[in-house]
């Protein structure tokens, strides 16, 4: 029998998908890429619908690959038939486009899929290599809280890690991927989104691969890789057009620049974009 000292190093690779926004082709491409990268576990952090066409096409992929999914604010809204997406915009233009997207998604999501979203958990917790992982949508304390890189202090993230007893917090919701090392080797990662580009003029979308390596006598090593996903975005754009979705949304897919829902962007993130 092998002694503890002889046990081989262990390794897990988590594929973490943020907001899908009905972009099923990007989700399919991301799953393919993660499999090639030897991902061992798959997670989705919520917001399955919005923005894109044919929301029901996302669900079979989540089921086929056993992707454990957190409930996003959009999933809560669509699942429970609420009036809006709970993003809380006040700019009339942002609200106009958000409502078009919401009404379309609500009308096109089947009842079984709505029921499934309604029952999704607000968070997923587990331990791996002795580290406590917490997967949520916006923040551990609020599904629709925006944690932007430039408006979230490290002291605040440390407090969340303390209060919610987590070593690694994984979130999405803002649409932009970023990470921050916290005190005592803890980590916060915004895993990005597959639903639309990262407002950087590129047509790819992003997900996160988190690798954990450990053995009996060293502390676990965490490696975060933000992975660009290239997919047939022109085909997605054509489908959005044929579904009558706004040209503003289509342009984002084709150009990589956000055109709507800009009100909530802080200065630094807004300045990096074109609009």
């Amino acid at each position: 029998m092998m002694s503890r000292e002889d046990s081989p190093p262990r390794r897990e690779v988590f594929a973490l998908f943020g907001g899908i926004y009905s972009n099923a082709p990007a989700l399919r491409a991301a799953i393919g890429d993660a499999l090639q990268q030897n991902a061992t576990r798959f997670y989705c952090l919520g917001d399955l619908g919005a923005f894109g066409p044919h929301p029901d096409r996302v669900f079979p992929l989540l089921h086929e690959y056993n992707i454990e999914t957190v409930q996003g604010n959009y999933d809560d809204s669509i699942g429970n038939g609420l009036n809006d997406c709970q993003c809380g915009y006040t700019d009339p233009r942002d609200n106009h486009f958000a409502q078009i997207s919401y009404d379309y998604t609500l009308s096109k999501t089947s009842e079984p899929n709505r029921r499934w979203m309604r029952d999704l958990p607000k968070e997923i917790r587990f331990e791996c290599a002795g580290l406590r992982f917490l997967l949520c949508h916006g923040s551990p304390r609020r599904t629709n809280e925006f944690l932007w890189e430039s408006t979230t202090s490290t002291a605040f993230l440390d407090r969340l890690a303390d209060d919610y007893e987590a070593d690694v917090i994984l979130a999405t919701h803002t649409g932009l991927h970023w990470q921050r090392e916290l005190s005592d080797g803890r980590l916060f990662v915004n895993v990005g989104v597959l639903g639309r580009p990262a407002n950087d003029g590129q047509c790819c979308v992003w997900y996160t691969l988190l690798t954990i390596e450990w053995d009996h006598d060293t502390a676990p090593q965490l490696t975060v890789k933000f992975r660009p996903v290239h997919y047939d975005h022109e085909r997605l754009a054509a489908e959005m057009r044929s579904e009558g979705l706004p040209d503003e949304f289509v342009q984002t897919i084709l150009t990589g620049w956000w055109t709507t829902c800009m009100e909530v962007l802080p200065a630094k993130e807004r300045l990096r974009g074109k609009f």
Binding site: Q86, G88, F146, W148, T151
Partner: peptide
Amino acid sequence: STKRQEHG
């Protein structure tokens, strides 16, 4: 950017 949203 940090307006507190209702619900959620």
